[in-house]
Design a protein around this nucleic acid. Structure first.
Lengths: 188, 188
DNA sequence: ATGATTTTTTAACATAGGTAAAAAAAGTAT
DNA sequence: ATACTTTTTTTACCTATGTTAAAAAATCAT
């Protein structure tokens, strides 16, 4: 829903009335079936998505192994960060893990809104700040936690998603093999 | 030098004349001796620094091991990302690896400049975008590279710093022990 | 230059986690 | 319910990298 999207934006950083009115008509909805590719490797990501419903994973292959950078679920924004920001080909693949409904604005509109509305520019700054901080946190986690701690943290922070994400995907998110994850789970 | 700082900002995103004039008087210089702590753990980072000269490392301890998140050298900006952005206590330590001279603006000024000047807000957005993208890249590297690839990449991307960073620090940046790094180097 | 300190390498050993393959369990469809 | 598919666990084996300690090399100070 466009309204939820706008509410989300306002929550990150309050928008001016003019900005709000300028955003609304630019919001489009896009739906994806379970398993459908939302953005493929090499493709430039042209949208900022707000997930109204569903679950998405953001991953890539390296030497036959799968690495998942992040999951995104309802009431959250997502995009392919560097691809969207710099309009460069994505190094990652984004697919729907469940039937997913999104509200989106595209890059051209996003840039125009930034230019026209200081309050939207402020929102963008906050958005990217959050992204940078989340990524920094992830780096720290990857550094200092061994696999079993990582799993413990993952469980704590993603309780609402646990039933919806397979152990294989969880392992790929943690950067370990599924066998290792099974071993970790067995020790408890 | 204030001029270099301003030039750097303009390079990231062009500033309006008014913004430039408003920034200049807010820039202060700060110098640090080799080994001096610039921002300690638990301390809120109140400055955005531009390095005129020198080298800085950004690290933390975990279970007696040292992990280095990043090095910053001359003609680059640095701050303690989440601590500065959210004015929360830093989880990291920042120290000078060499005698270091910086030009800085503090958080209050930074926020005021964002509020007053759309062009400065745009600069900030770009800055955080760059930070987010760099962090994303680092996550990917940590995921998919084994230690010897990581070292190879590090050499490529930091040739200018190689003579200035000890192998111990390099190992801490790569997230491996110095012994492992020595082994990697031996195999060539 | 000489000795003291720091950095880097080497050696010996321990362990976390990878791969491959099979077994078990859970989920889905007819 | 039965068979088929997918997910998860278990086993066996192997490798990369950690730890500790000592040797070697490089750097620094008087």
């Amino acid at each position: 829903m466009s309204i939820d999207f706008i509410n989300y934006l306002n929550q990150v950083s309050p928008l001016s009335k003019e900005a709000e009115e300028d955003i609304l008509p630019r919001i489009k909805t896009k739906s994806f079936k379970k398993g459908q590719v939302i953005n493929s490797e090499g493709q430039i990501c042209k949208n900022l998505f707000y997930i109204d419903k569903g679950l998405v994973k953001h991953y890539y292959y390296h030497k036959d192994r799968v690495f998942i950078l992040r999951f995104f679920s309802e009431t959250n924004l997502f995009t392919v960060l560097d691809s969207f920001a710099n309009q460069t080909p994505s190094k990652f693949i984004t697919i729907a893990l469940e039937d997913t409904e999104t509200s989106t604005i595209d890059y051209a509109d996003f840039e125009e809104l930034c230019k026209k509305h200081h309050s939207f520019e402020t929102f963008s700054r906050k958005l990217y700040t959050m992204a940078a901080v989340v990524n920094l946190k992830r780096i720290k986690e990857m550094f200092d936690a061994d696999a079993s701690e990582l799993y413990k943290e993952f469980i704590n922070e993603n309780q609402h998603l646990l039933q919806r994400i397979s152990l294989g995907d969880t392992a790929s998110y943690l950067g370990i093999s599924q066998v290792t994850l099974s071993r970790i789970r067995a020790k408890k």
